[in-house]
Every structure is written in C-alpha cells, then in structure tokens.
Design a protein around this nucleic acid. Structure first.
Length: 430
RNA sequence: GCGACUGUAGCUCAGUUGGCAGAGCGCAGGAUUGUGAUUCCUGAUGUCGUGGGUUCGAGCCCCAUCAGUCGCCCCA
C-alpha cells in the first residue's frame, strides 16, 4: 500500500459493504424518530469557533485540546469543524426563531470531529445521530427521549445495554456542591494521586469516578450532589424516574454520572455496554435549559441526546445482527450485437416494473458472465444470445432454486413472469 | 497527550540460527468451443507499512517515522 496518499489519521472510509449497512441503520433510526414526532434538520459542518467555546465551555477537554480550529485564510474568520451537534443546532434554532412560537422536536445525523488518539470506537471523524427537543420544561420530554431510545434498541435488535441516569441539578446547586467538594478534597490532598490533583480544580466530580482503590473511602464520604438539589430539581428527577418505571424500563441511578460539556443541567442519562472495551457509551444526553439563552436566544428549556453511530454499528455487528447484503433481482447476461440491444431493452423493461437489475457490462464469455451473475447475488439470470435475439426471446434461469427449470420465453413476458414467481415465493414464506 | 503490542498478496495469515517471498480464500483462464454456485487443471499477484542503519547478505537485528489494536485519559 502506498503511504503517500492515505486518509487522515482517525478518519475512515466507509466502504460499500459497510456503507450499505449504515444506510439501513440510518433509515431504521430516522423512522423511529419520526414516529415520535421528530423532524430532520441539517446544519453546516463548519461553524464559527466562538460558538463552541461559548456552548461547550472554555475549560473542557473538547475545547482546550480536541477541536479542529483554523483561520479561514481568505477572510481571517476563526472556524471550527463541529465537535458535536447541539451547539450548531441551538444556533440554527435561535437564528431562525424556530422555538419562539412553537415547541420543536429535531434530529440530525452526520460527522463530528475531535482530535483524539484513535482507537476502537473513537475516531477523529466520527458520526452521531443527534436528537433535540426545545420548549419543554417538564420531565416528560426527558423520559420520552429515553423511552424512544429503548424502543430503538429493540428495533435494532440490541440487547445488554444498560441505562444510567443522574441529575446534575441547577447551576447554582451544582456550584455549591462543587465548592464544598473541592474544600473536602483539599483536606485529603495527600491521598490524591497525580490524576486527582490535576483534576481537583478542573473537574473534581471526575475524581469520584477514580479507579484507584486508595481513594475509595474518601470518595464514599465526599459530599454528594444529590444532597444539594432543591425541591424542584428533586421533583423533576423523580418525575423522570416515575415515567421510566411506568414504562417498565430498568435503570440505575449513578450519582457519579457527569458530563464533559458544561451546558447540561437536571437530567443526564447514558446507555452503556461492556462489549466495546474502553468506549462503552453508545448514547448519552440530558437537559440543557440554559444554553439557548446563553447563546443569545430567548430562554428556552431544552433536552437532547446523541448516539455514536460507529459504536452502535459495532455493537450490532458484535451481536451478529448485521443482515446479509441483498443482491439484485435480475442479472442480464448477453453476447452478440443484436443480443446486447435486446438486453438493454429488456433490462429497462424490468426496471419499469420495479425490479432491481444489473445489466452485464464489459463482455466476456457466457461462463464468465454467469459467474458474475452468481456472485452478484441475483435471484434470476436473463440470458440472451444470438439465437434468442433473432426471435425476440430470452432465457430465464432461477439461480437460487435448482428445481425450477430454465425457460425460454418472449422478451415482453419476462417481467411479468419474474414478478409472478417472486410473489409466489413470498406467499410460500409467509 | 502517555504506555504496551502489532504491521508480509484484494482478505485471513505462515515465514526456522539473518541465506531464492509462501499457503488458504478470492481473482483470471481452461476441462468436446451458449450457462453460475460442487470438483479438477493452469496462471497472476507483493516497494515484506515507510525512511535510514548494521551486515558479504535483512521480512527477520538496531534507530526513526506512519498507521492500527489494547489500556490510561476523554467521550457519542
């Protein structure tokens, strides 16, 4: 393989065999989202850099060291390849006043960019399907989105992913907890490992997540965010849990569940698997009531989540849920000038009747063409030689059923004949 | 960003103490010249990731670099 010309590290080609499955996956997800009233929206992949700094938070890892930011050399404008979708979606909602008169349920899909060290389930160009709801203040939308995802896993045949939820409360509640937590941890600085010291002032909540056994006692006794939540925050959290219980969706409350983006408040949730190694989160989201106003819009409550497409597809594949690729209905084999002309006419006729047809191109012996027909996965071969062309006939051969004999029939009748046989097979199967 | 492991044909991989580059699958052609999937025969694959170094000689040893995998970190 030449090393001169290759894709950027962490940015991958999705080749036909895989891309076909991606399309199917995206279709299943889009249909499910529409069934809950969500509408598609498409935003640019490039946004002004300040949008992400303001939305995600200046001191987050994403903004500090993972963004593909650059200056447009043609006009000096600072731009960034979007590292996530919510900021751009909120920007679009504000810019077009979408949430001013009505609530909005929106979804989008596409590539995101973060300059991380690639490994399985983590790429520099990766794909998310994002879902956002604007204008709903209550716990109902939070729960609805979780119900939606649970149903989606069912659609996709996914099992063994578990739901974790938590409440981050309101910013002031979180700030009081954070101050107390830092004060508490400062008293135990001598026990903190290097990681802990580094995170003490940047992301103290993450310290509670530490895998270091020496820290377990300290973490267990640390101030808990839930104790800082006011009545309204607790009621919201209980409201979400009530709907989940009513719907029979199992979940665990994980008090250590936090966010890497600053804009979240109240409900946060994650769907997690053990089967993907270190990158176990396949879907995550939560409420972000302050973001629309923070970015210059009217105060608008909002809630959303994103799915990692690569991770979900890896999970489906791991579970053997990837369907076998489907071939065309018909492969048309032909040899000779008159036969080729008839072949084009027959192929177009078959397509007029809604059949998927590959017309052999590039010549070759009947044997070679038949091999291609077989390899294409086609159900039928239509074979046309000089003999058939002379009388306006074709040979119809069933490639997947050796009991059906090859038949010679008039070119005009072949479409009807194939459709009849396809209908028969379908009836037998059902 | 840190650490460990890996990189040989389109794919999956073998390759001994440093001594001619290999297999299976796939691909192409053929087995009384108009028919696939089975079987048999024949054939083509390649900058051994890349660039240096050591050596009479490097796929193998050394250095660098790129890429992938796993863990840390982070996150969807």
């Amino acid at each position: 393989m030449s090393q001169n010309l290759q894709s950027v590290r962490g940015m991958n080609d999705i080749l036909p065999a895989e891309a076909e499955f991606w399309e199917l996956f995206e279709t299943i997800v889009a249909e499910r989202l529409k069934s809950y009233g969500y509408k598609p929206i498409r935003m640019p992949i490039v946004e002004p850099t300040p949008l992400f700094k303001r939305a995600i938070g200046e001191v987050t890892d994403i903004v500090e060291k993972e963004m593909y930011s650059f200056i447009d050399s043609l006009n000096g404008e600072p731009l960034t390849l979007r590292p996530e979708g919510t900021a751009g979606c909120v920007r679009a909602v504000i810019q077009h006043g979408l949430a001013n008169q009505a609530t909005q349920r929106l979804y989008y899909m596409g590539p995101m960019f973060r300059h991380e060290r690639p490994q399985k389930g983590r790429y520099r160009q990766f794909h998310q399907i994002g879902v956002e709801a604007f204008g709903f203040a209550g716990p109902d939308v939070d729960a609805e989105q979780i119900l939606l995802t649970a149903r989606l896993w069912d659609d996709l045949g996914l099992e063994g992913i578990r739901l974790e939820i938590n409440s981050l409360g309101q910013p002031e509640e979180r700030a009081r907890h954070r101050a107390d937590l830092i004060a508490y941890l400062e008293q135990h600085q001598e026990v903190l490992d290097e990681d802990g010291k580094r995170r003490l002032y940047t992301n103290p909540l993450r310290i509670l997540d530490s895998k270091n056994p020496a820290l377990q006692d300290i973490c267990a006794a640390a101030p808990k965010l839930i104790d800082y939540l006011g009545e309204a925050s607790l009621a919201h959290f209980q409201g979400v849990q009530q709907i989940l219980r009513d719907a029979g969706i199992p979940f665990v409350v994980n008090p250590r569940l936090v966010r890497g983006l600053d804009y979240y408040n109240l409900t946060v949730f994650e769907w997690v698997t053990d089967r993907l190694g270190a990158q176990g989160t396949v879907c995550a989201g939560g409420r972000y009531d302050g973001l629309v106003q923070q970015l210059g819009g009217r105060p608008t409550p909002a809630c959303g989540f994103a799915m990692g497409v690569e991770r979900l597809i890896a999970l489906i594949r791991d579970a053997g849920g990837e369907p076998a690729p489907r071939g065309p209905d018909v492969y048309v084999v032909h040899q000779g000038e008159a036969a080729t002309r008839l072949a084009f006419r027959v192929a177009e006729q078959l397509r007029d009747n809604g059949l998927d047809v590959i017309l052999h191109c590039g010549g070759g012996s009947f044997k070679a063409q038949m091999k291609k027909a077989d390899a294409s996965g086609a159900l039928y071969a239509v074979i046309i030689g000089d003999d058939e062309a002379a009388s306006g006939d074709v040979q119809l051969k069933a490639l997947r059923d050796p009991d059906v004999p090859q038949r010679r029939l008039a070119a005009d009748r072949v479409a009807g004949c194939i459709i009849d046989q396809l209908v028969d097979t379908e009836e037998e199967e059902s």
